[in-house]
């Protein structure tokens, strides 16, 4: 089996401030990796660097995606290659309808692969099927992207887009934050319905709660811009009990001898 994503010694900074200090992570098709860690540990930075946000500067290391250098690609090329980021703070775009964006996304990827646009009827069928998974009303399709949506609706809309786009590697950036338990279940159902042996997920979360519903294969603890501990799904439960207090000391010690 070929590794899908291979992150090696990744360093990144924002406005000159180092946030990631040597991340190593291997993700294979079919796997779900949870990235946990205290606030400010670099979880969101990692998610955004992978998606290509240009306010983050990669200063060292490499990221290989199916053996190719991901960091050389534009944001849209990464998307067309199958990388999807579910935003922690989904952006409101007045004047562009939700359905238009999803159609543009689906067809951009098809065009990239040399396929013709998806026929309108087929697209509508697809979207009607997917919208049921996230329990959203059809009227949301014709509203402007995220405009006036509640926090929970925005997050469900991210999952809807993911379900429609059907990415190869989905990165969920704190999709659970601010969700009540019902919304959380809906989001988890959306993710679980997409789990397959050729698709991988990186689930960034602060809390263990989401992982009751999306059961990960691996859990990594990020602190001080490094992965300080990796384990199976039980690691998340340990963290839930012990908190992050025990970890926050570790990277400082490591940084001292670096």
């Amino acid at each position: 089996m070929n590794t899908m994503l291979s992150i090696n010694n990744l360093h990144a900074s924002v406005q000159g401030k180092a946030i990631l200090n040597g991340i190593d992570l291997q993700v294979n098709p079919g796997e779900v990796h949870a990235i946990m860690g205290p606030n400010g540990s670099g979880k969101s930075t990692l998610a955004n660097v992978l998606a290509g946000r240009d306010s983050y500067e990669v200063t060292r290391g490499e990221v290989l995606y199916n053996g190719e250098n991901l960091l050389d690609w534009s944001v849209e090329q990464r998307a067309c290659e199958g990388i999807f980021l579910a935003f922690q703070y989904p952006v409101e775009i007045p004047g562009v309808s939700n359905i238009y964006l999803m159609k543009a996304a689906v067809n951009a990827r098809r065009k990239y692969r040399g396929m013709p646009e998806m026929p309108a009827v087929e697209f509508l069928k697809l979207i009607r099927e997917k919208i049921k998974v996230v329990d959203m009303k059809e009227e949301f399709l014709h509203r402007s992207v995220n405009e006036g949506f509640s926090g929970g609706e925005k997050k469900r809309n991210e999952i809807l887009q993911m379900a429609v786009i059907e990415p190869t590697l989905a990165i969920l950036d704190e999709t659970d934050s601010g969700l009540d338990i019902d919304a959380l279940k809906i989001v988890a159902d959306g993710v679980n319905s997409l789990r397959s042996e050729d698709r991988a997920f990186i689930v960034v979360t602060h809390y263990q709660r989401l992982l009751d519903y999306i059961v990960p294969d691996f859990v990594h603890v990020l602190a001080g811009g490094r992965i300080v501990k990796s384990g199976g799904k039980d690691l998340a439960l340990e963290l839930e009990k012990a908190g992050y207090g025990w970890i926050e000391i570790a990277p400082v010690a490591e940084a001292a001898d670096a």
């Binding site: 306010s55 849209e76 998307a79 999807f84 980021l85 952006v91 004047g95 562009v96 543009a104 887009q161």
Partner: peptide, 30 residues
């Protein structure tokens, strides 16, 4: 043009020129 809106559109596969166009249309549309 809103940088975060640009990044959002591009992260969905929409190329940069089209994204700029879309946001500009959306601006003038009302």
């Amino acid at each position: 043009l809103d940088d975060s809106a640009m990044f959002y559109l591009r992260s969905r596969g929409v190329d940069e020129t089209t994204a700029r166009g879309l946001l500009t249309y959306a601006f003038a549309a009302d």
